[in-house]
């Protein structure tokens, strides 16, 4: 009997969200099949990969990375331009680690100045990530959204604690895109999307940040959350969950023991930089097959490898 190909059809579709402006603007989402299942239907826009930079010198980063960027690491705008020219990521994530009240505690004004300089230096779409302090981030995001009006940036992210400030300023007042962060809580993911839309934010201006985890560190919770969200979005045509997903892989993978431990402490584990890249690539690839439409990585080699992975699978 001849082989008959059966395609899996879904009634729902992931929304398309565009970041940035001009030639380098990117669009994510748009598929009506499981991630990368191009043999089943419309696979939408290929997943996008961004590279992380920080507003201040990131003391806790791997030494090899700090060496790699040594000429530019003290100036976020130069750093962004260097990354754009040399590695051409789909987008750049400016991570405001310096805004943290528990750390450098840079003022909102100082941060806005950095954001403006970075945005002026590049044409690549920009994602702005916060300090993990909800109150500070609320103020920071509102001010950055205003200062960068017209750049169509993505704010990473609004949480249950600050979605009103971030949603109102970011998306409503200054027409930026906003990610809704739910920390591996599937019901909160849906609830935040509902609350943001009830606030007046358009569905096509929302991206989901469902949480992140390094492979081996509770990643299966993240992965099963993504699966459940995607099956509801596609299979049950749940319009409150059809926002594309962004996963900041870099934030977790470079903080776990396997990436952090020095070669002196763990000689059998080999080169620390290599280990970090391996963990980052493995986690990013797993996120993409689980449903992420965009991932953020830290190492340029991870960027290149993950881009190749996507191209290879979508050929």
């Amino acid at each position: 009997m001849a082989y008959t190909k059966v395609a899996k059809k879904y009634s729902g579709k992931i929304n398309e969200v565009t970041l940035g402006t001009g030639d380098k603007a990117i669009t994510i989402g748009g598929r009506n099949v499981l991630p990368l299942h191009h043999f089943d239907g419309e696979v939408g826009n290929p997943p996008k990969v961004g590279l992380e930079i920080t507003d201040i010198v990131p003391e806790d980063w791997n030494d090899a990375l700090k060496d790699l960027y040594s000429d530019v690491i003290g100036d976020a705008a130069k750093w962004a331009k260097y990354v754009e020219d040399n590695y051409a990521p789909d987008f750049i994530c400016l991570h405001f680690v310096g805004a943290s009240p528990d750390g450098a505690n840079k003022s909102v004004e100082e941060c806005v100045e950095v954001a403006k300089q970075v945005a002026d230096a590049i044409t690549t779409p920009l994602v702005v990530a916060g300090s993990k302090n909800d109150e500070k981030d609320g103020e920071l995001f509102a001010a950055v959204a205003e200062a960068l009006q017209g750049k169509n940036i993505l704010i990473l992210a609004a949480k249950e604690e600050n979605y009103k400030t971030v949603g109102a300023a970011g998306a409503l007042a200054y027409q930026q895109k906003v990610a809704a962060e739910s920390s591996v809580d599937i019901n909160l993911a849906k609830q935040l999307n509902i609350l943001m839309t009830q606030l007046g934010v358009k569905e096509e201006d929302i991206v989901m940040h469902l949480g992140s985890a390094a492979a081996g560190y509770g990643f299966e919770y993240l992965s099963s959350t993504m699966d459940r969200v995607i099956l509801a979005a596609l299979g049950q045509n749940d319009t409150t969950l059809q926002m594309p997903i962004i996963t900041p892989v870099a934030f977790d993978t470079w903080g776990v023991k396997e990436a952090v431990a020095s070669e002196t402490d763990e000689p059998e584990w080999g080169n620390a930089e290599e280990r970090g890249i391996h963990l980052e690539v493995a986690t990013a690839a797993a996120c993409l097959v689980s449903g992420a439409d965009a991932v953020i990585v830290r190492h340029p080699k991870s960027l290149q490898t993950v881009k190749n992975f996507i191209e290879g699978l979508l050929q």
């Binding site: 019901n187 849906k190 509902i194 009830q198 969200v229 509801a232 749940d238 969950l241």
Partner: peptide, 12 residues
């Protein structure tokens, strides 16, 4: 389980 729970499910 026909639809995913969220606190605002009655408002949808």
């Amino acid at each position: 389980g026909n639809t995913l729970y969220a606190d605002s499910y009655l408002e949808l």
